[in-house]
């Protein structure tokens, strides 16, 4: 009997504490996600050159355990005009977010910092295939994420700034 009453006292003292829960649908009351949170993958955008980071190299597609992505690449016009260092650029990209298991392998294997796990996680849809997202949508998610955490590429070489012609090599030898 004593222990029973002791338990009751614990419950009563808990009632006086501040709540530990957040209220989910309300934006101001919910608990924010952590900075490292892995939501759905999204493509990042290079504002300096005005093109996505992704070159369509397909490494992430081959490494995805659920094969939920597909992509096509094309020749980069900006490269021929010497405005960008990316020879090839992504043409179409589709991820079936309904199949994605949020493992983050695609982010790990990408050599161009072109894909990131965004903070996007609420994607309930009424239609069955509404979570097949295409390139503009993925970039929209990515840009939202980039702005939120003030993102910059992890490797400096992935910035798309075009390399100067070889003659002026002495001045910026360590640029790349």
């Amino acid at each position: 009997m004593i222990k029973l009453i002791k338990g009751l006292i614990i419950t009563l003292s808990t009632a006086l504490r501040s709540p530990v829960t957040g209220e989910y649908p309300m934006p101001e009351k919910r608990i924010p996600v952590k900075n490292k949170f892995m939501g759905f993958p999204a493509l990042t955008y290079d504002f300096e050159i005005d093109e996505p980071f992704c070159t369509g190299c397909m490494v992430c597609i081959r490494n995805c355990p659920t094969s939920c992505m597909s992509a096509n690449m094309k020749d980069n016009e900006k490269f021929t005009e010497n405005k960008s260092s990316r020879k090839k650029i992504i043409d179409t990209f589709e991820i079936n977010l309904g199949r994605c298991i949020l493992c983050g392998i695609c982010v790990d294997v990408c050599n161009f910092d072109a894909i990131e796990m965004s903070h996007e996680h609420e994607r309930s849809k009424f239609e069955r295939n509404a979570n097949r997202v295409n390139l503009p949508e993925l970039i929209k998610m990515g840009v939202k994420y980039q702005q939120k955490i003030n993102w910059s590429p992890k490797q400096e070489k992935n910035r798309g700034t075009p390399k100067k012609p070889k003659t002026s090599n002495e001045n910026n030898g360590n640029l790349t």
């Binding site: 952590k34 490292k36 949170f37 892995m38 298991i101 949020l102 493992c103 983050g104 392998i105």
Partner: peptide, 15 residues
């Protein structure tokens, strides 16, 4: 799980 989230990025399926 909050600590997991700030370390691994996920609450349950960490990888």
């Amino acid at each position: 799980q909050s600590v997991f989230e700030s370390v691994t990025g996920a609450r349950m399926m960490h990888n």
